[in-house]
Design a protein around this nucleic acid. Structure first.
Length: 584
DNA sequence: GCCGTTTTCGGCCCGACTGTTTTCAGTCG
């Protein structure tokens, strides 16, 4: 899709305009266009043709013309012209924490610094510290910023962020005077990757001693053994790099009095874009929203709970999972928010491995663990023969496993084990087992495990062809991505979703936090086409079954209700649903 | 540049922290 390219172009223009010191509101609208285009579910070319792009909020006449120009010619004059005005490598300096557009402008104009390499030299010879508005400390901050940037692996996975958050939460709960400790930010929204971790602490009602008390709480955080480096430590806010066994991540701790808890939680949860929307609404209603509350003049109108703030703004309560400015504010105003799927709605797991392939627990152990979670069913989906490294089963071994499952079902009450397989989609789009064997299974997940870097046409062809099989119930981890490790396949997502709808194939939402595949926005596209999602943990151990909450959160971020999720079906309905695609 | 149940012009989210300042600008979230 050209959407990603266009998004980058608008962001690049905004970067350059910032360095040039142009109008910040204009820059903001470029940023908004960049973000809007990136999140469009359909290629801009298509939306241009059917006129929908012009209706998209945030995209006005000027941006529309620029996009049109790019779609027609592959270039954009405004972009080309802007890039000519500063050295090409200059915008990369904006990525250094502590360096903003003003700083970049000063070091460029005074020292001729054009790149991070130039900047390192200027820092080393002391010329940065001598610049107007700079100094020894500022130079040191920039130095550390460069080191951080070069050592950083970028965003971390949600499970890693939750682990870091748990460390800090446990520490803060022990500090005297602390009443509540809540995880906020993108971790609370269960975003698929996390930039930094936000934690909110409340004390009792505001008193004379509050400031001292707040300071002590921040200090307790910054001197904790897991803190690598302190970035800031004031009276209400502390920021530090926290190191766990797996990762280092920035954690921000904010302390507020109890009467502002809701406002602070709302503010600190974000997303930024969602908050901007609410603040705009507050302004229109002659009010003001900040992290201390919703105010009319100086009077506090709401603040103790998040619910009260949304209510006073004329909105239904928006679950944190939806706060991305993807239409949830409008829906909340029209009482049209979905009843999101919850972990309690989940009656079983669709994607599980055992010792028969590369799992570490037996069939019986996995079933026992699923029963302990209160599930009603479990689908056993071991690998197929071609997945040699994963100890994929031969047809003979699979046939034996099916027998084993039937026998287990015969002696189990109130719980059903479904016989399935995760069958490889081969290079030509055919399946790794014959139809006769597939017909003996209750369900089939078809997955691509090889050739993930093939061109778009090839991976899309294989994916669509596999869905043509009447025995393929579910397309497994459709894009094949591994967060932080491996890019998604270059799959034509709209075509894949369209074909899933046509063939009646379900799409997996693989809940393993390495995958979260399909991702939230694609889940939403699928749901809008009436496609059922199946949540699977891809568990390779009994503990792995506990990852279901990641899948549920991601589905909810895709606006899924329990009707959209096959895991929530009662068993009888599930069984008949599994047969819908099969030959009659 | 975008937008409009007060506006087609005149707005555009808000506050904390830091460092370099003699009262505030820059950066961040």
């Amino acid at each position: 899709m050209r959407n990603a390219q266009l998004s980058t172009i608008f962001d690049q223009m905004a970067d350059v305009m910032e360095i040039l010191g142009e109008d910040r509101f204009r820059i903001n609208s470029y940023r908004k266009v960049a973000r809007t285009v990136a999140e469009l579910p359909t290629d801009v070319g298509v939306l241009l043709e059917n006129g929908r792009l012009a209706e998209t909020p945030g995209i006005g006449k000027s941006s529309l013309a620029k996009i049109e120009e790019f779609v027609e010619s592959g270039t954009m004059a405004a972009h080309t012209e802007l890039l000519k005005r500063v050295p090409a490598s200059l915008p990369e300096l904006l990525r250094i924490p502590g360096m903003g557009p003003k700083g970049v402008k000063v070091i460029y104009e005074n020292l001729g610094v054009q790149s991070i390499a130039d900047l390192k030299r200027a820092l080393a010879d002391g010329s940065v510290a001598k610049l107007p508005g700079f100094g020894q400390k500022k130079a040191a901050t920039i130095q550390r910023g460069i080191e951080f940037l070069e050592a950083s692996t970028g965003r971390i996975r949600l499970d890693q962020a939750l682990e870091a958050a748990a460390l800090v939460v446990a520490r803060l709960r022990e500090v005297p005077g602390v009443e509540k400790v809540e995880i906020a930010g993108s971790v609370r929204r269960r975003a698929e990757t996390i930039g930094d971790v936000d934690i909110l602490v409340t004390t009792g009602k505001h008193t004379e001693e509050s400031n001292q008390q707040h300071k002590r709480i921040i200090q307790a955080f910054t001197v904790a053994p897991f803190v690598d480096r302190v970035l800031a430590a004031g009276e209400t806010k502390g920021s530090a790099i926290v190191r766990t066994d797996a990762v280092a991540v920035q954690v921000d701790v904010r302390v507020v009095p109890a009467e502002s808890f809701g406002a602070a939680l709302q503010y600190f949860t974000g997303s930024k874009q969602h908050n901007v929307r609410l603040r705009e609404m507050a302004l229109k209603a002659k009010m003001k929203l900040n992290e201390y509350g919703l105010f009319k003049g100086d009077a506090l109108v709401a603040g103790a709970t998040e619910e009260s703030i949304y209510k006073k703004l004329g909105l239904d309560y928006v679950p944190a999972l939806l706060r991305e400015d993807r239409g949830e504010v409008e829906a909340a105003g029209k009482h049209a928010l979905p009843q999101l799927v919850r972990l309690e709605d989940i009656k079983g797991d669709f994607h599980v491995h055992t010792l028969a392939s590369d799992g570490r627990a037996s069939l019986e152990e996995m079933v026992n663990a699923a029963q302990a979670l209160g599930y009603k069913f479990l689908c056993i989906t071991d690998h197929s023969e071609s997945s040699v490294v994963a100890n994929g089963q031969t047809p003979k071994r699979l046939a034996q496993q099916i027998e084993q499952i039937h026998a287990l079902n015969a002696r189990t009450k109130g719980f059903t084990v479904l016989a399935g397989a995760e069958v490889d989609i081969l290079a030509d789009g055919s399946l790794d087992f014959e139809d006769e064997l597939l017909a003996d299974l209750d369900l089939v997940i078809a997955s691509i495990h090889s050739g993930l870097t093939s061109p778009r046409g090839k991976v899309t062809y294989r994916t669509l062809k596999a869905m043509d099989s009447p025995y393929v119930t579910i397309l497994g981890h459709p894009t094949g991505r591994m967060l932080g490790q491996r890019e998604a396949m270059d799959l034509d997502i709209p075509a894949m979703i369209e074909h899933a709808a046509q063939t009646g194939t379900a799409l997996e939402l693989n809940g393993n936090p390495y995958r979260l595949d399909l991702k939230d926005v694609h889940c939403r596209m699928a749901i809008e086409k009436g496609i059922k999602l199946t949540l699977g943990t891809d568990a390779h151990s009994t503990a792995g079954l506990g990852l279901m909450h990641f899948g549920v959160a991601t589905a909810a971020r895709g606006w899924a209700t329990k009707q959209n999720v096959a895991n929530a079906l009662p068993l009888t309905k599930l069984k008949s649903w599994l047969k819908t695609k099969r030959p009659k």
